[in-house]
Nucleic acid binder design. Structure first.
Lengths: 353, 353
DNA sequence: AGCGCTGCCGATAGCGCTAACATTCTACCC
DNA sequence: GGGTAGAATGTTAGCGCTATCGGCAGCGCT
């Protein structure tokens, strides 16, 4: 054998592709002296593994610091344990309460939230949903019930359970949990009329993509035309204002200038109303004697101010929990008791109107 | 051929596993009459495909509604385009500004945020990070610079770029962007002493897992012992209070009862301080004449209140942007100019102290 | 004519995991 | 003692994509 010309061993072909150099299921299996399938079972269905093998495998997992690759699991099992969540904005704290509720129900079931925000832009929403769908989420939670046709088509084609939130429609993509922004605003105006107000003025900064706020304006218009027919509803809509208390101050000034005869300013959100209320005191404007104010959303601040802000209370956290519950049922293939859940709203009467 | 006994065709074995019944890259390739590799190229490196083939493929993609499976891409390419983000709580709006900054920089680069929150619980943080690592994120953004040993070990072993935020340490896991909570509070007490205050009292509701707040308390203690040596620092720490304005009201009462001689209440956060300030007016307590108040965080409300709240302004959004930039560099394999970035803080002087 | 280049495209071999089926082993029965 | 059900484990074949390499034109140059 000595002196053979060249290596006798067949050339070990270098592998085409470098491995990821992390511990894999196969490594664990080799160390524990079992097949990789058994390790997989220890991870997913430990009851089907004999106690002593299971203990050995678990020990190896712990010692080696093995972390399962969920992308591979996702690919093989066709389930991702991801719920994609689309919100308009991270800053608006109302949504964060909904997110908390959502996560509180989904996390114990092993789902992770993949988050994206649209900044109230329909084009961004479409792009975002497309890229989120690429992760093959097991469920999708959307804010609002108004979406482009192309988005609806995409969602339908994907056959992923969907829950829409924070609004109301008779034709949800799949399931829906929320309330009617339009009815809520209508109810607010009704309430004001009963209280004796005669010249309400809607005040806000509406973005084209903020369909919930647009529904509120629609509710205001409908109420105004119903209760004071023939008169043009008073509306102040200053575009491009950020959602801050400061903007509320600005809007207060604009509204007083545009409609000095108005007896109550109906703000599109508590943020603006709160800002206006804080500013009114500094301007020497007495609320509600000289001018009444109302908000929408019932943030905590609204109840702490004096006078307290009359507003519409919304089931923020409950929306998240109910949406998660609905999604869970659909993801399990169950049919929920109702595909649409109306959680309603409540007029919170305080001193500002 | 007629009347042949039984099927001549060899039994087509049923596939072991059902396909996912969605459009795949292979389907697109077949429809466009090219190899799947070419379709893959159209998606990732379109410049390397001849214009006419590219146009044909793109048309098929559009018509078929093909959405690439990112889990498969992740597995094959070993890059996930995911940044895992850990925050203590969704409700605290400070973090949402950081998240916005983070996302604003990362989204244009094609990264998605996988979000998890810990509720200020170290055990949950560990469990959360373990499960997030399963997705093989390209980067990880953490809140705080204090983490369990086992977490640090796990992160190191994963070799994923990490950025810690909102705090300061000389030994970051990988990179760090934030400021010193301890120094900030120390600076606040210094400022108060210069203003003539002599009996400050720290007020908050500290959770074991809220290491940032604990650092602030440490800064307060250090300052108190330095400026008024020999005296026990005044501290009101009522456990288990939620992070609400209402809790601020409660804390105000508790602090006045426990330390009636205090001349300034140093709150651990603007939320409590704001609640206290709002309540003080209703209690007939004049701020700052009878009692001064300070906050931490400079929320928008603090500047709108009268008197305005003296507080520590933090670079909320800037932290997110800087963290994203740092992560991007590390994910590209570049070495950033500095692995630790101190964005500092600022004492915001208003009327409340 | 022959050479090396570049541009474009396809074939092959995985990435790390699980579903589906196959096999072995054990306990227990008649 | 042979048969058999059921528990425990192993084997095989992908999931849908990309990395890598190889091949083939077409071009300019010597």
């Amino acid at each position: 054998m000595v002196g053979g010309p060249g290596p006798q061993q067949p050339e070990e072909r270098a592998p085409r592709r470098a491995s990821t150099r992390t511990v894999t299921l196969r490594d664990v299996a080799a160390l524990a002296g079992v097949s990789s399938q058994t390790v997989s079972r220890v991870l997913r269905i430990p009851d089907e593994v004999a106690p002593h093998t299971r203990a050995r495998v678990e020990a190896v997992i712990r010692e080696s610091g093995y972390v399962p690759n969920l992308a591979a699991r996702n690919l093989a099992s066709n389930r991702s344990k991801i719920v994609a969540t689309v919100i308009p904005s991270l800053s608006a704290s109302i949504f964060s309460e909904t997110l908390t509720g959502l996560s509180a129900v989904l996390a114990p079931e092993g789902y992770q939230l993949l988050l994206g925000y649209t900044d109230y832009d329909d084009a961004r929403e479409e792009e975002l949903i497309r890229s989120l769908l690429g992760r093959r989420p097991d469920g999708i939670c959307l804010t609002g019930a108004v979406h482009r046709e192309s988005i609806v088509a995409m969602l339908r084609a994907s056959r992923v359970p969907v829950v829409e939130t924070w609004d109301w429609t008779t034709t949800p993509v799949d399931t829906l949990v929320g309330f009617s922004n339009e009815e809520a605003m209508f109810a607010m105006v009704s309430f004001l009329r009963e209280k004796g107000y005669r010249s309400p003025c809607f005040v806000g900064s509406l973005r084209a993509g903020d369909h919930r706020a647009l529904r509120r304006l629609a509710g205001f218009r409908r109420a105004a035309e119903r209760f004071w027919p023939g008169r043009t509803p008073r509306v102040v809509d200053e575009p491009e204002l950020p959602l801050t208390l400061e903007s509320g101050a600005r809007l207060l000034d604009l509204a007083r200038a545009a409609h000095p005869e108005a007896d109550v300013l109906v703000f599109s959100t508590d943020v603006y109303a709160g800002g206006a209320l804080l500013t009114a005191a500094q301007r020497g404007l007495r609320v509600p004697e000289e001018l009444a104010l109302t908000g929408f959303g019932d943030f905590e601040l609204s109840g702490m101010l004096r006078p307290g802000l009359t507003t519409v209370a919304l089931p923020n956290a409950e929306i998240g929990r109910a949406a998660a519950t609905l999604l869970l049922q659909r993801m399990r293939g169950e049919e929920p008791a109702a595909r649409s859940v109306d959680l309603g709203f409540e007029i919170r009467r305080r001193e500002s109107a």
